[in-house]
Nucleic acid binder design. Structure first.
Lengths: 177, 177
DNA sequence: TTGAATATATTCAAACTTGTATAAAAAATT
DNA sequence: AATTTTTTATACAAGTTTGAATATATTCAA
């Protein structure tokens, strides 16, 4: 999965322990990913097992759990580039959970369906506004790399598409019920 | 998750065994989902355990594995409506694995990045053409419910957004390297 | 008619994710 | 100074998905 890519990519810059990796993910990718601690520690132990990373320090402060600091290996750097190129090449079909919900529309009343659609439209509109503000802040900050703005745009474009689709759906709701 | 919704929705119409459920999913939702046998059988046993469905028949033909036919219960019908409404209400943020790949663009050469982007653009264009044909076929077939077309449109709108975003990215590639 | 491919039907181990628990230091609050 | 909240740091159980394995029936061509 892409968790391995992220962890190798982050460790490619400097050795870190699990908690720090989580913080970096949160800081730089927090808006568009949601990687849990459990996944990070699991991936770390798997990557260590396969020799892509290695422990360079086990640092115990008082009686807290020991910090296990990991470093990327030569094999890990290769694996990182392999995963990176793979991620650039393969285009995965997006799965929309809402399609399932739409598939079973006949079990809702028209009033309900309309209400939910209006809620979704409102929700998407708010997210678009939020992203717009966010992007303007980013644009003015010279320390934010351009990729970050491109990634925001990615969500923006798709949210716009979602909005238009939802509006079409609402306009033609009578066809579906 | 939505597997439970799908299974309850399908069993809401008629009692079926696991293999048949898979076939129905394949037939009606094959284009926009990819639910594995393992997930279906797991969900079936969980739903049976919680009393949302029940076994009504264990049918052995010769020495093949016995078909276990499940039927939805009253509790299951309630649960179905609960899950359906939940799915209509909640808007989950889409996660694009490619964002990870873009985040690490600095580890690629410009030539590589351009080549991969062109590949992605080509790929998305092909999918759009395919969906377009598909949709026209569907439109002419009076037995295809309208929702099916709306679901195709859903992918179509998002693929268009993806295409435009990729083209922007390619046009401004020098900003990122 | 025989044997190769495909369809039927499920199980299970292994991989992975999520959520919760644990435990203590540091910071903030009263 | 005492208490609460937040931050640091990991582990582990429980839930879920994936992929491979199993075993038989049916179809179809050579």
């Amino acid at each position: 999965m892409s968790i391995r890519l992220v962890i190798l990519g982050i460790l490619n810059q400097q050795p870190l322990h699990g908690y720090e990796i989580k913080q970096i993910i949160e800081e730089y990718m927090g808006d568009w990913t949601d990687i849990k601690f459990g996944s990070i520690y699991f991936a770390l132990s798997k990557l260590a097992e396969s020799g892509h990373i290695e422990v360079i320090e086990e640092n115990r402060t008082g009686k807290r759990p020991a910090k296990t600091v990991y470093q990327i290996t030569a094999a890990g750097k290769e694996e990182f580039l392999r995963l990176l190129k793979k991620a650039w090449c393969e285009h995965k079909q997006i799965i929309f959970p809402f399609d399932m919900a739409l598939f079973f529309i006949k079990y809702l009343s028209k009033a309900e369906a309309v209400q939910y659609l209006q809620q979704r439209i409102e929700n998407v509109t708010q997210k678009l506004n939020f992203l717009n503000d966010h992007k303007n802040e980013h644009r003015q900050n010279p320390y934010i790399p351009k990729e970050a703005i491109a990634i925001i745009d990615h969500s923006y474009y798709h949210l716009e598409a979602e909005l238009h689709w939802l509006q079409d759906l609402l306009n033609n709701i009578d066809d579906y019920l």
